[in-house]
């Protein structure tokens, strides 16, 4: 069976505009990403700022134009699909945005906001009061919230409104951009539990975009790690957490310190800052920050290599285990 969503060699290119007469350049925010999202499964895309993860998500949602490659949804090509035809698919492919309150139109009540999908998709003749109540109950908000405005609710509540609105039309694929950003630790779990529950109930496929590995650990089946617009590692979540292949994945794991002062930390400190995507390093693009860099890394571009159930883009996968062996 083929996957619900198949992304193949997708590039997203932005035009850089200088002054009126200056030459126009381009930057590639996403450079050749391929991944599959299966029906009813969760795929987590992890990366830091500038990794291109949000751009990729928006390209799938038809909000950015993919300049190369192919995005197949149930076998239908989404790239270059005219908006009029894409509109039909927007019932099935929905997106939740990073800023929970900022993504809600400020002058509309919560009721209008969560029932908007019906009106937009020509189903405004339904009993919208009933639908609003159903959706609020689904995400665990009291019915009184229907009359409130976005500025009158908290960030966590606004997230729930975002979920209600995204799932109003019983979609097939939910793209969640940083679903826990800005939430307190004690509420983050609630959000992830809600997504997990609704996924089980609705058979939804979820693509989660986040910078926080801890967020994807429990809720995803597969994770992909992005660095400078490329996937550098992909694999079953447990596998990636247990045996990261790429040093960048290892660094991300190590950068989430446990709340334990005596924890034996495997300190993988990256040197320097991420390079600008305008000046991509030669060879492996991670070599400028890699703690295990080898001479070959600055000249040869590593290819996408399958390993176990996953794949990575590193000349020396699991190099950290060797270093550890040497150290001990």
């Amino acid at each position: 069976m083929s996957a619900l969503l198949q992304i193949r060699d997708v590039f997203v290119r932005f035009r850089l505009r200088g002054g009126i007469f200056s030459s126009v350049g381009t930057i590639d925010a996403v450079t050749g990403v391929s991944l599959d999202i299966e029906e009813g499964k969760t795929y987590g895309i992890v990366g830091e700022s500038g990794s291109g993860k949000t751009t990729l998500a928006r390209a799938v949602a038809g909000l950015h134009h993919a300049s190369e490659g192919s995005i197949l949804y149930r076998g239908q090509e989404l790239r270059d699909l005219p908006e009029a035809e894409f509109r039909e698919l927007r019932r099935e492919i929905v997106m939740m945005f990073q800023d929970p309150i900022g993504s809600l139109s400020p002058r509309l009540t919560i009721k209008s906001l969560i029932t908007e999908p019906f009106r937009i998709q020509g189903m405004g003749d339904r009993d919208l009061d009933t639908e609003a109540k159903r959706l609020l109950t689904m995400v665990g908000l009291p019915a009184e919230f229907a009359a409130r405005y976005p500025y009158q609710i908290s960030g966590g509540q606004a997230r729930r409104v975002g979920v209600a609105r995204a799932l109003a039309l019983d979609p097939k694929l939910l793209i969640a951009d940083e679903p826990t950003a800005g939430l307190d630790v004690s509420i983050q779990g609630e959000m992830l539990n809600l997504l997990a529950r609704l996924q089980d109930e609705m058979g939804l496929a979820i693509m989660i975009i986040t910078h926080n590995l801890n967020v994807v650990r429990h809720i995803t089946d597969t994770v992909g790690i992005m660095y400078m617009g490329k996937l550098v590692e992909e694999g079953p979540t447990e596998e990636v957490f247990a045996r990261p292949q790429h040093p960048y994945t290892l660094a991300l794991l190590a950068a989430n310190p446990e709340p334990d002062p005596d924890a034996q930390l495997m300190r993988v400190e990256l040197s320097g800052e991420p390079p600008s995507i305008l000046r991509r390093p030669k060879g492996c693009e991670f070599h400028t920050r890699c703690p295990f860099v080898q001479p070959r890394c600055s000249t040869d571009v590593p290819v996408w290599t399958a390993a176990g159930e996953g794949a990575h883009r590193c000349h020396f996968p699991e190099i950290w285990t060797r270093e550890e062996a040497v150290a001990s």
Binding site: G62, R90, R91, M95, G102, S105, P106, R107, I120
Partner: peptide, 24 residues
């Protein structure tokens, strides 16, 4: 972001103008 969110739901330009921009 809320205008992008509306687009992602498939809202037409007329709807975005009339319902989301005019009131603001």
């Amino acid at each position: 972001e809320f205008i992008t969110a509306e687009k992602s739901l498939g809202a037409s330009t007329a709807r975005i103008m009339g319902i989301h921009i005019v009131p603001n």
